[in-house]
């Protein structure tokens, strides 16, 4: 039988869930769309990395990933059409990864044996250029 302490904690958490359920029926913000790919193992950096993807535009993020660490990169966009492409280069422009080769996966885990500064590019693959107002977001999670 659960202890009173556990029952109180569970009740408190249930109340919190109810308090937040108001959001679930609404349109998900871009940040929430990305964070659903994060999972419980990863802690995001608390920053929203959002960039416009206009006509043929690419978003570029330059960030340092530390050695002996694992990160999850999750991507999402507000475009109902096309596939969001994530390409990762090092600063010498060596190609490290592209999700186009893996079914346009919206997230991927990266383990770094050594510290590497990377350039993460986002763009949309589609039959037509994305309309103005198209935005893409990169979420970076650190494995805790």
């Amino acid at each position: 039988m659960p202890s009173p302490h556990h029952i109180i904690t569970a009740a408190m958490l249930a109340a919190l869930l109810l308090a937040n359920s108001q959001l679930s029926g609404q349109q998900q913000p871009l940040g929430q769309r990305c964070s659903k790919h994060m999972g419980s193992e990863f802690v995001t950096d608390g920053q929203e990395h959002i960039a416009p993807l206009g006509d043929g535009q690419r978003a570029e993020f330059r960030t340092t990933f530390f050695g002996h660490s694992t990160y999850r990169l999750a991507i999402c966009s507000n475009s109902p059409q096309g596939h969001l492409v994530m390409t990762v280069y090092d600063t010498d422009k060596n190609l490290l990864f592209c999700n186009r080769d893996y079914g346009y996966s919206p997230y991927w885990d990266f383990s770094f044996t050594s510290t590497v500064t990377c350039i993460v590019q986002l763009e949309l693959d589609g039959p037509t250029p994305p309309p103005s107002g198209t935005m893409a977001m990169l979420a970076i999670g650190f494995k805790h």
Partner: peptide
């Protein structure tokens, strides 16, 4: 789903996350 006013750090077309 659009938010163009988020904490984007955009300089010269690049965005720079902070660890």
């Amino acid at each position: 789903g659009l938010d163009s006013t988020s904490t984007v750090m955009s300089y010269g077309g690049s965005l720079f996350p902070i660890p």
